[in-house]
Amino acid sequence: MPRTPSEDTPAISIRHLHKWYGAFHVLRDVNLTVARGEKVVVCGPSGSGKSTLIRCINRLEEHQKGTIVVDGIELTDNLKRIDRIRREVGMLFQDFNLFPHLTVLENCILAPVWVRRVPEKEAVQTAMHYLERVRIPDQADKYPGQLSGGQQQRVAIARCLCMNPRVMLFDEPTSALDPEMIKEVLDVMVDLAQTGMTMVCVTHEMGFARTVADRVVFMDGGEIIEENEPEAFFAAPQTARAREFLGQILSHGQQAAGA
């Protein structure tokens, strides 16, 4: 498929996606289209396949049936395509996954230098620019092990941004953080949303979903059960499973929001 990413091709288009882990059917006929600049929040109970779904988008997991088209490129076994997609798609993990043997700055310039072949000087400038945006330029020469969790996750965001991605995927980026650090990371993510970045975010931070998301997708048992605008979804979930899930989240989330 030739790459013609005009403004109206969706950033991500997933059609009839199925995935199995051995005999276990994890993703069942998932359909999801994300427009350019759109922010989609994915939620659902633990084990419902949220991580698996977004990890399929950059081929950390392989799907068995259906199609995934990212930025006009269909994801197949073709290594060139996988490379191209991974260059355009940044991913944030629950446990940060910074490279502990490299400084913050080295973490940020590694991929631009080795993947995009950007001259080091330029890569350093870009990195400092993004480290300022996530508000930790003064930590550039520290090692990840010397930073707090919130700082590490912000570095991870800067590291993704240094590759200048078109799409960012987030897999529960705040769920490994202490409550007082959640806000600093969410603030950076809200900033990022305002720049027009296409974002797919697995999170249970309902406040974040309300302020940022264009759409909330609710998954259960490997299926998308419900899809709606955040206000409508939170105010009046259509399905019993979503209502039950929100009931559990909110009783817990109220305390977190209060903190």
Partner: peptide, 26 residues
């Protein structure tokens, strides 16, 4: 940890670069 390999791969690094730049040094 597997996460190191996944993070490096998701940044677009080729498998042998992942090995040389991220996995082996650790």
């Amino acid at each position: 940890p597997r996460g190191q390999i996944e993070a490096a791969a998701s940044l677009g690094l080729r498998p042998w670069r992942v090995m040389r730049l991220v996995v082996v040094p650790q």
